[in-house]
Computed example of a mutant assay.
Amino acid sequence: MPVKHPKIAVLLAAYNGMQWIEEQLASILGQLAVDVTIYISVDLSDDGTEVWCEAFSAVDSRVVLLPPAGRFGGAARNFFRLIRDVDLHGYDAVAFADQDDIWQPDKLLRATQIIASQGVDAYSSNVTAFWPDGRTILLDKSQPQVAWDFLFEAAGPGCTYVFSPALACSLRQQVIHDWEPLQQVSLHDWYSYAFARSHGFEWFIDSQSSMLYRQHENNQVGANTGLSSLFQRYVTIHEGWWFKQVRTIALLVGVGNAPFVRGWLKLRRRDLLLLSVRGGQCRRRLRDKFLFFFVCCLTAVVGTKS
């Protein structure tokens, strides 16, 4: 009897990806002991990405190019389109993929084995960020999950996410139901983690790095390393984007009436001061708990631009 490999749907969002997409596809199609089908949705590009993907899919039945759907203007809307439009029935797992990374050969096998052995519904992992000059650094996202971290951060890069069929189906139904308000969500990985945790799905964050996470000037969200990245993240908070996303996601995943959330959801000055002392429930990493306290206090004092 032939060995039955897990059948996995990989949802890949692309945009102007000609520099990297061939190497990424090779690393996905080369995954060990799994059967993959890659579904690609291309945001309108000007570097020939659509034409290249169409030609590639014509010669490899494991790659399916979705028909054009206009301009998305960001990875989140492109991924939501993939979740909505791809028939996920019959797959043993569903994974997200970016266009510019390099996966370890056992990434999907390890993820599906952990989902089965741990009895969880979702997997994500640490990654190894790498730069064109050869620098690398491990990005550690595997700190213990806390009660409300899912409202304030993702479970790591979305390109490491792997879902069970039950979670994938439930997420797809919610995306279809909330399609219009979901267009206000800027980060699909943050929303997906929040949806899973708020709906009782168990999530495992692996301390092992599953992929090389390419860093370049076109990253929508890159590695959070160094003072410059911390400053950029503070700018987004000061401009009001981050707290608006927190509130939007909290309402979309249905926890707006939870006593903990209701206490700060209006984001008034006193709400933020109250929230500042709850950092232990809101962020996983110790450094981020302290930063959370200061950001909430500072925002309560100086406010945001919007």
Rank of each mutant, 00 (worst) to 15 (best):
Q24V: 06
R287F: 12
N126V: 02
A223M: 06
R284Y: 03
L291F: 10
N16Y: 06
Q118C: 14
A97V: 10
T304H: 03
S45R: 04
N224H: 14
E54H: 12
V94Q: 00
L286G: 14
D47V: 05
L291G: 01
Y15P: 00
Q245H: 08
L187E: 03
F231E: 08
D189M: 09
S124F: 04
F294M: 07
G279A: 09
S41F: 10
R247W: 04
S210Y: 00
V34P: 00
F79E: 01
P105D: 04
A166E: 12
L109S: 10
D101T: 11
Q174T: 15
D43N: 08
W148P: 00
D149R: 02
A116C: 13
D133M: 11
C53W: 01
D271P: 02
K305S: 09
N16T: 02
W203D: 03
V3K: 15
W241E: 05
F80S: 01
R284V: 03
S45Q: 04
S192F: 09
P181F: 06
P105Y: 10
E23P: 06
C296A: 13
S186C: 11
Q208A: 06
I102C: 06
S207T: 13
A33D: 05
P132S: 08
V261F: 07
G254F: 12
Y193V: 05
D87L: 14
V63E: 01
N218K: 14
I205M: 11
D46V: 13
W241Q: 15
Q19E: 14
H216G: 10
G73C: 06
L11N: 01
L88P: 02
D85H: 06
R172E: 10
F130R: 08
D35Y: 03
V185W: 00
L138E: 07
T37F: 14
T128D: 09
V295E: 02
I114W: 04
L274K: 06
F243P: 00
P144F: 03
Y213A: 08
R285H: 14
Y213L: 12
I8N: 00
I176G: 09
I102K: 13
R233P: 02
F195Q: 00
V277C: 09
R270K: 11
F152Y: 10
V255E: 03
R197G: 00
T248N: 09
V277I: 12
V3S: 15
V302D: 10
D43T: 06
K141H: 10
Y123N: 04
N224A: 14
